[in-house]
Write a protein that binds this DNA or RNA. Structure first.
Length: 561
DNA sequence: GATACTACTTAGAATTATTAAA
DNA sequence: TTTAATAATTCTAAGTAGTATC
């Protein structure tokens, strides 16, 4: 694998163009269990009266009941969408009766669900072991496929169970019913000469095809957004690994021509063509601020989020002067997953002047870059460097930032080294705007760590005093030697905890995992660990070590991104 | 060149497993 | 041994970007 990779620096395909495999065999996806009807003693009430629902309506009612503790169920849009879709599952009679969600009492259903969760938690060790083994068996049977003589782990071999759609942010479709997928909805993709997967008894597949220009094993169309879902390989598979490696090689190639590209867009800021100037400013944002490309989206189908090319005039505010700086652009918009991007950035006079011009005679709702879209931008980028698209800048800037931040760090303590690594990782996460909701128990866990630090400090003081005393009495006695060790151990533990506290505080709202998993060339981290004599598993968990096996194999300590 | 469709990567939340503390 | 905290893993939504179709 390594040799083949080295031989084809940017094209890892071992087959002719577009062919992804020669042989693919699998068991098909695993379907979730059938709906289990409610026991007779658990009742749904409408307008104070018990109502026995039909099976289909009951199942959907339970989806809602299970979510009652969630904020979603308080939202107007969610409730309306739910009621509308729920009524579609009802019998005529039920539909006549149930018209107002506020008159629905899901209390007993909700209680039953909570009880079930609790019961599962309280299962005995043996029972849990039995469940575990059963899951293992399912994984063994459905979780793997044969792809070109290799047994590969499948990423998502389980069909998504039915439920209520949970969009992010203000999603217009939140609360809609996500329907149960039947084998009749599923397309199977595999080799003609493989053992074709059997559909569950009494069912047929929608289609069995043999398309080796794609990597998916099965697909179905999801009913809420009408988009396609795929069963694909796990990240640790050869196919995914090669693609990942290729991604980082393209980003490294950008490193060698980024200076030229930057000069070019600086030059383009002066262009007579409005379109060219817009492209230049957009590229400047993408490069400097690591913004996403920003494809257009269908209005009203999803939450209102934007990326670079889809920014609207209301998303930026121009300040001739702000906080002692001139030409400041204030960004405030919702990006992917409705994560807010807020930033105040001083820019060059030329960029600023262009932005003012782009905003002229426009009103709220108008595109900032009205002469530009992601397609045009990427066409331009690909002409500057093969394989270059907007998202490569994120990969490049993330990885180069990590490498720079890690340079010249010195410490002999592993905990301190790890803090430095996490800080470098954090710089990248900030750049890419990878945020998370602060953990629910954050304040509490911070306080308990602080308390531990205090008690350890006291312990250390005490140990120090005792040592002093012991030294006075008899130099070099076994007693004082022992105490010396205690003091040392205390100091180490204290340092470790203090470092941990700093790390955690700084990490409150920042998610490190996304950049680690998707943006940072793993060879930088592997080489750093080797150079700094930090065990790799301090930085990468099992999943990451698996995913980045290719990098762990090939990286020498002198690797430079 | 608009736009619909397809295939794939990237994303944070939710769930589950593991470890540490009580 | 039990419980609570933390870490790992799973889940699936939401992006990017290429191609097909008009």
């Amino acid at each position: 694998m390594l040799l083949r990779m080295l031989h084809s620096v940017t094209r890892s395909q071992k087959y002719e163009d577009g062919i992804k495999w020669k042989f693919l065999e699998h068991k098909g996806p695993y379907f979730p269990p059938e709906y289990q009807p409610l026991p007779d003693n658990v009742k749904f009430f409408y307008d104070g009266k018990a109502v026995k629902l039909s099976l289909a309506a009951e199942e959907v009612a339970l989806f809602f009941a299970q979510m009652l503790d969630h904020e979603y169920t308080t939202k107007e849009v969610f409730r309306n969408n739910f009621l509308k879709d729920w009524r579609k599952e009802m019998t005529l009679e039920e539909r006549m009766l149930i018209t107002d969600l506020n008159k629905c009492d899901f209390g007993e259903l909700h209680a039953m669900h909570k009880q079930k969760v609790e019961a599962r938690k309280n299962l005995s060790k043996e029972e849990k072991q039995i469940n575990k083994e059963a899951n293992q068996k399912i994984l063994e049977e459905f979780g793997y496929c044969m792809l070109d003589h290799h047994r590969e782990r499948i990423g998502n071999f389980k069909i998504e169970p039915p439920g209520l759609f949970r969009g992010r942010g203000d999603h217009p479709k939140q609360g809609m019913l996500k329907k149960r997928i039947q084998p009749e909805d599923v397309i199977i993709n595999c080799s003609r000469n493989s053992h074709i997967p059997e559909p569950p008894t009494g069912h047929k597949w929608k289609e069995v095809r043999h398309d080796n220009t794609v990597t998916w094993l099965a697909s179905w169309t999801e009913n809420v957004q009408g988009s396609c879902k795929y069963v694909m390989l796990n990240a640790n598979s050869k196919l995914k690994g090669e693609k990942d490696w290729e991604k980082y090689e393209v980003a490294r190639k950008l490193k060698s021509c980024v200076d030229a590209i930057r000069s070019q867009y600086q030059e383009d800021l002066k262009s007579k063509q409005m379109g060219t100037r817009q492209r230049a400013v957009a590229l400047y944002f993408i490069d400097k601020l690591a913004l996403r490309a920003g494809n257009e989206k269908e209005e009203g189908e999803t939450a209102d989020t934007v990326g670079c090319c889809s920014l609207r005039v209301e998303h930026i505010t121009l300040h001739d002067a702000l906080d002692g700086e001139t030409c400041v652009v204030e960004f405030d918009f919702l990006g992917k997953d409705c994560i807010r991007y807020y930033n105040k950035v001083p820019v060059s006079k030329r960029v600023f002047k262009n932005l003012k011009l782009f905003m002229e005679n426009k009103q709220e709702g108008d595109d900032l870059f009205d002469r530009l879209n992601t397609n045009m931008l990427n066409k331009h980028l690909t002409s500057l460097m093969p394989g270059l698209t907007a998202k490569v800048f994120r990969t490049y800037n993330a990885s180069i930032t990590l490498q720079q931040q890690l340079k010249g760090l010195t410490s002999d303590n592993v905990a301190e080294k790890l803090l430095s690594y996490n800080r470098a990782n954090r710089a990248v996460a900030v750049l890419c705007n990878h945020q998370r909701a602060p953990p629910k128990t954050f304040e509490q866990s911070m306080a308990s760590l602080q308390a531990k630090i205090e008690s350890r400090k006291e312990q250390l003081e005490l140990a120090k005093k005792e040592l002093k005393l012991a030294k006075k009495e008899a130099k070099g006695s076994s007693d004082s030697k022992l105490l010396k060790k205690t003091v040392q151990r205390c100091e180490e533990q204290l340092l470790k905890m203090e470092v941990q506290a700093t790390d955690r505080e700084e990490n409150k709202q920042i998610a490190l995992s996304t950049s680690k998993l998707n943006y940072l060339d793993p060879r930088i981290s592997v080489a750093w660990c080797k150079n700094m004599e930090v065990p790799l598993d301090k930085v990468y968990n099992k999943t990451l070590r698996d995913k980045f096996a290719w990098a762990i194999d090939m990286t020498e300590p002198d690797f430079v991104f």
